[in-house]
């Protein structure tokens, strides 16, 4: 029981920090919105009409892009969660937690959970703004809840990877290039922004092994087609495994290298 309580308080701290600076939430939401509104609108004009409908199975590009942007939000939030560990180490807070009678694994677990919840809050805001822009979610409010949950799971996985790097890399200057190096290729080799049908064969190949694709696909099915479980399940299960594997890796790395 204390294990869960300890996770909760690590999580509680991260959430308090999150809400202490509302501007950080605004900027975190702003970036994906820029993508959605600017890129989405421009692309809608470019690939408008019947061709877009054939390739992306959406009425318009904005409709198509919204689930992708939600996963992108999860990607960025997750990637940056490694920072909090580096920062904690720097200000000595990590040692303070490590000298306290709490289990080692509660620290990364609480941080992963906080990153996921924070990204889910951002996604709800983005979904609301997308709705205001005319985007409709075919599977309804419950479908949207499941979409946010899938992206939240994906965020757990990415956050765990980012925190695993942060166990070894002790400065933000060292961590950021790695995260940038990972996030852009992950984004553009997935189907978050562009339909796979647009991609050349080799890129489709990469896309097929990109965990981000597996988060986007079921969400897009829910957004565009509705409750088609046979198309939702594979991605959902894959994302669940991805998150579990990454969290397992993180707790192992943390246990081995942070004493």
């Amino acid at each position: 029981m204390t294990w869960f309580a300890d996770i909760y308080f690590v999580f509680w701290r991260e959430m308090k920090r999150y809400f202490a600076h509302k501007t950080r939430i605004v900027t975190a939401v702003f970036q994906p919105l820029v993508w959605l509104v600017l890129l989405g609108s421009a692309m809608s004009g470019m690939v408008g009409g019947s061709m877009a409908k054939d390739l992306s199975e959406a009425e318009n590009y904005l409709q198509f892009m919204t689930p992708g942007i939600m996963v992108m939000t999860a990607l960025f939030s997750g990637m940056f969660s490694g920072n909090s560990l580096i920062w904690d180490r720097r200000i000595g807070f990590l040692n303070k937690m490590l000298a306290a009678p709490i289990s080692r694994t509660t620290i990364p677990t609480g941080k992963v959970a906080a990153a996921a919840i924070q990204s889910m809050i951002q996604m709800v805001i983005i979904a609301a703004i997308a709705t205001a822009l005319g985007v409709r979610f075919t599977s309804g409010p419950l479908g949207l809840v499941l979409m946010v949950l899938i992206a939240g799971l994906f965020c757990c996985g990415i956050s765990a990877i980012s925190l695993s790097f942060a166990v070894f890399i002790k400065t933000p200057e060292g961590l950021h290039p790695i995260l940038n190096f990972l996030s852009m290729p992950l984004l553009f080799t997935s189907n978050a922004i562009f339909p796979r049908a647009f991609m050349p064969g080799w890129l489709q190949g990469i896309s097929a092994v990109n965990p981000m694709t597996y988060a986007v696909t079921p969400m897009r099915v829910l957004a565009l087609e509705g409750w088609r479980w046979e198309s939702v399940m594979p991605g959902l299960v894959f994302t669940l495994f991805f998150a579990a594997a990454a969290c397992y890796l993180l707790s192992w790395v943390f246990g081995q290298h942070i004493r």
């Binding site: 701290r13 308090k16 920090r17 202490a20 600076h21 200000i91 000595g92 807070f93 040692n95």
Partner: peptide, 8 residues
């Protein structure tokens, strides 16, 4: 290190 959390 003055290990207190500035954001709390």
């Amino acid at each position: 290190d003055l290990a207190v959390d500035d954001n709390l």
